[in-house]
Computed example of a mutant assay.
Amino acid sequence: MANVFEFIAEARSETGSSAAKVVRRKGKVPAVLYGGSASPEMLILDHNDLLKHLAHEAVYSHVLDIKVDGRTEKAVLKHIQRHPAKPQILHIDFMRVDAGHKLKVHVPLHFINEATSVGVKKGGVINHSMSDVEVLCMPSALPEFIEVDMANVDVGSTLHLSDLVLPAGVEIPELHQGVEHDHPVVQIVKPKTSTESAAE
C-alpha cells in the first residue's frame, strides 16, 4: 500500500457541480488545494486510494504530501464532504503548509487509564464531551494525538481544555478567548439509580 501520508493527485480544469459529477462517475474525487501564496488548485484523486488513506487516524493530524504533476506540496486535511448514506467521499479540501508559519489543525484525543481510573473504580461512568481538539503549532511540532490520562479523575470531576497536557510548542487557541471557552473534555459522573432512570 502507498505511504499513508502521500496522496497522488492530478490537476483538473473543469469546475462546477456538473463537472464534479463526471469526476465521481469515473471513481474519482474532486478536491481543492488552497492556502499559502499560491492560487487554489483544483485536483482529482482516486476514490479507493483515498478511502484507504482516510482509514488511518493519523492522516487527520499529519502534514501530508500531495503529489501533483511531478511536484510535491505539503498540506493538511481541512475538510471532507461525505455522502450522507453511502461510504463515498464527495469532495476533499487540503490546505498548504508553510514550514515557517503556525497552522491550526484538529488533533484526536486518546483517553488512557479509563478502566482503572479512581472514579470508575467507585462505579462512576465516563462521559466524553470531545473526541478531538483544535491546536495551533508549527508544522514540525504537530502531534499525532493528545493523551488524556484518566487515572486520577474521580466521580464528579471534569477535565477541561486547560487541563490537557500539551506537547512543547503546541497551544489551544480557544483558550486565549477567555475562561468561558475552557470547555469540558471528559467527566466521570455517578451512575443513575433505577429510580432516576424510571423517572426519565
Rank of each mutant, 00 (worst) to 15 (best):
N3C: 03
F5R: 04
F5I: 01
A20T: 11
V23G: 05
R25I: 07
L33G: 04
Y34S: 04
S37I: 06
D46N: 11
E57F: 09
D65S: 13
V68L: 15
R71N: 07
K74G: 07
H79A: 11
I80H: 12
I80Q: 13
R82W: 14
A85K: 04
L90W: 15
V97P: 05
D98N: 12
L103K: 07
V107S: 02
P108V: 00
P108D: 00
L109W: 12
H110R: 12
F111M: 11
N113H: 14
E114T: 10
A115Q: 12
T116Y: 13
T116M: 14
S117K: 05
V118D: 07
V118L: 09
I126Y: 04
I126W: 08
I126L: 14
N127P: 01
N127E: 09
S131D: 11
E134D: 01
V135Y: 01
V135T: 03
L142A: 00
E144G: 09
F145K: 13
I146S: 01
E147Q: 11
V153Y: 01
V153N: 00
G156Q: 02
H160T: 04
V165T: 13
G169E: 14
G169V: 01
E171G: 10
L175N: 10
H176Q: 13
Q177C: 14
H181D: 10
D182G: 07
D182C: 06
I188C: 12
I188H: 06
K190T: 13
K192E: 13
T195A: 04
A198S: 12
E200H: 05
